[in-house]
């Protein structure tokens, strides 16, 4: 019933219906992976901002001095220059968050977060692949 509002090939998804859905862990103002909601919740200046795994491209970390840096890259239009665009967008003319970077003295925890995000992405890709195979 909502297909009329969707862009070409873009499937509707959302992390939470309302603020009551946020897990208690967000209170700590730390990055949290909510597997059940298929989302990564980022603390941004005091806000708890969820990002559905479908919006995330990948996550990586690097060590510099006493700190570990975590970078999350998001799906945005125009990243696949010269390639066939295979990720549809609801509104390609909107402003997109392309990436965010965090730093922490706790490299072990950031390492663990990268693993969790990568695993969540793998699971989402796998489900998407299975759906495609079913449709064929």
């Amino acid at each position: 019933s909502t297909s009329g509002k969707e862009g070409k090939g873009w499937k509707k998804y959302q992390s939470y219906k309302g603020e009551g859905g946020l897990p208690d862990e967000v209170e700590r103002l730390r990055i949290f992976v909510d597997r059940k909601a298929q989302s990564v919740i980022l603390p941004i200046h005091g806000f708890a901002v969820p990002f559905h795994i479908n919006t995330i491209k990948n996550a990586s970390k690097s060590d510099e001095g006493d700190f570990t840096y975590l970078r999350i890259n998001f799906q945005t239009p125009g990243q696949l220059a010269g390639k066939k665009e295979d990720t549809p967008f609801e509104d390609p003319d909107a402003t997109f968050i392309r990436s965010v970077s965090y730093r922490s003295p706790d490299g072990h925890r950031f390492d663990n977060l990268v693993k969790q995000i990568t695993e969540l992405k793998k699971e989402a890709n796998k489900r998407e692949q299975q759906k495609k195979e079913m449709a064929d």
Binding site: R28, I44, I97
Partner: peptide, 15 residues
């Protein structure tokens, strides 16, 4: 500050 510290955010602004 409490929690994780965001150091950079990048936006893609078409047009």
């Amino acid at each position: 500050l409490a929690g994780d510290e965001m150091v950079e955010i990048r936006f893609h602004v078409p047009g």
